[in-house]
């Protein structure tokens, strides 16, 4: 896999991740991601027939509670940390979408 990544493949992954990369970064990541995945390939040799995946090791939960309204951040506070808040209107402002 170490030579398996092209600049175009890296760019396609970057687009999925909303990361705009420099051309130099595309080349660097093509090499480094290839190296890391080549190393990870040994995992694929292991027989995992019938082995369930582990996504979490949580055993018992403490947090189950009644679904009731509780105090939380007020809207003004929640919006205040935004780069472009419209506190009075209660919105986050963003560039136009279309």
């Amino acid at each position: 896999m170490s030579s398996g990544f092209t600049r175009e493949q890296v760019a396609a992954v970057a687009a999925l991740a909303n990361l705009r990369l420099e051309v130099s970064e595309l080349d660097l990541f093509a090499r480094q991601l290839g190296d890391i995945l080549a190393y990870a390939a040994e995992v694929q040799q292991i027989d995992t027939t019938g082995v369930p995946p582990t996504a979490t090791v949580v055993t018992r939960h403490a947090a189950d509670r009644d679904d009731e309204v509780r105090p939380s951040l007020d809207r003004e506070t929640a919006i205040a940390a935004a780069p472009d808040p419209a506190v009075d209107a209660g919105f986050f402002k963003v560039p136009r979408v279309i």
Partner: peptide, 18 residues
């Protein structure tokens, strides 16, 4: 920021480009 790469992400003023 870096110039737009191989994949287009809309015009420079768009949300996606931001």
């Amino acid at each position: 920021g870096p110039a737009r790469a191989a994949r287009a992400d809309g015009d420079e003023a768009s949300l996606q480009a931001m």
